[in-house]
């Protein structure tokens, strides 16, 4: 079969028919897609029609190339990819010639280099406008002494709510949805809190931490709490990299990649019985820079 010239080889009937079918389906596909665009609200007809058109054309082209006359097995010589000695000498001559012409002015070359560098440095200035200089902005959030804790629709939190093992995301009053001030407020049975947490500003079982994970900054919204024996569980988990914090012990990291506890927001009660902050956080919230250890 391979001895005969290509033009006289018998045609592969099945492949030919397959290619014909493929192109025909592709043709139909395009029309279906057009109709689908005009009439079908779901977009499925459009997509399937386009897919049929594309796959049909692809299939037909490959079948044609592979089975019908066009497949071949030929050889071609490679050209050498190395530099011949003559060419190498030419390059050396060129470099030597350059040294004798351009290279005769070392002072100009030096000054040119210096000028270029200086120009680049000059341009660096506007690049600095891309962002402000860090001036400790991340060291302050919107929390102040006496700021009420409110939910996302502005409702303050009453101290006397009776339910334990609850979770609320809260913001400073008047500054809802400011990213660095997001706080996760929990209420746990007071006797479960460690002394360190109480000293850190917990009030009657209410304890508040920055919601920004100290590992990479995601919101720590996962409070797994089961107070039903025998399987009690109290953990704050960050859904991004599964850092686990202990909410009754100052949110110190007990699992996962986080290394620093969530900063605790010191709480107090105002005259009307609502929870307020007793001040801003005592350290930077969330992930920190290298000099904020």
């Amino acid at each position: 079969m391979t001895d005969e010239p290509r033009s006289r080889r018998p045609i592969n009937r099945r492949a030919y028919r397959a290619a014909v079918a493929a192109f025909t389906i592709a043709f139909a596909g395009g029309i279906v897609a057009a109709i689908g665009y005009w009439t079908d609200e779901t977009g499925d007809l459009l997509g399937l029609g386009l897919a049929a058109a594309l796959i049909g054309i692809g299939f037909g082209l490959v079948a044609w190339a592979k089975y019908l006359d066009l497949d071949e097995h030929v050889v071609q010589e490679r050209e050498p990819l190395t530099v011949s000695p003559d060419e190498r000498q030419q390059l050396r001559d060129e470099i030597a010639a350059s040294k004798e012409t351009v290279g005769r002015r070392p002072l100009l070359i030096g000054l040119l280099g210096g000028a270029f560098l200086s120009m680049v440095i000059g341009f660096v200035g506007p690049i600095g406008s891309l962002g402000p200089k860090p001036r400790g902005q991340r060291g302050r959030t919107s929390w102040r002494a006496g700021t009420r804790l409110v939910t996302s629709d502005g409702t303050p939190i009453e101290v006397e709510r009776t339910t334990f093992d609850q979770l609320v995301t809260v913001w400073p009053e008047g500054r809802v949805a400011v990213d660095d001030s997001q706080v996760v407020l929990l209420r746990v049975p007071p006797e479960t809190l460690t002394a360190r947490t109480v000293d850190g500003g917990a009030v009657e079982g209410w304890v508040a931490y920055s919601k920004i994970c100290t590992h990479a900054g995601c919101s720590v919204g996962l409070f797994g709490v089961d107070n039903r024996q025998p399987d009690t569980l109290r953990q704050l988990v960050c859904p991004c990299h599964q850092s686990v914090f202990d909410p009754v012990d100052g949110a110190r990291p007990v699992g996962g990649p986080a290394t620093r506890s969530l900063p605790q927001l010191r709480l107090a009660v105002d005259g009307q019985g609502f929870l307020v902050a007793a001040g801003d956080f005592d350290r930077v919230v969330g992930p920190v820079a290298w000099n904020e250890a």
Partner: peptide, 18 residues
């Protein structure tokens, strides 16, 4: 063959997208 492959790649993307 190469052009056919392009259409097949596009076709697979379209099918999955649909």
């Amino acid at each position: 063959k190469s052009t056919g492959l392009f259409f097949l790649v596009a076709g697979v993307s379209t099918t999955l997208g649909t």
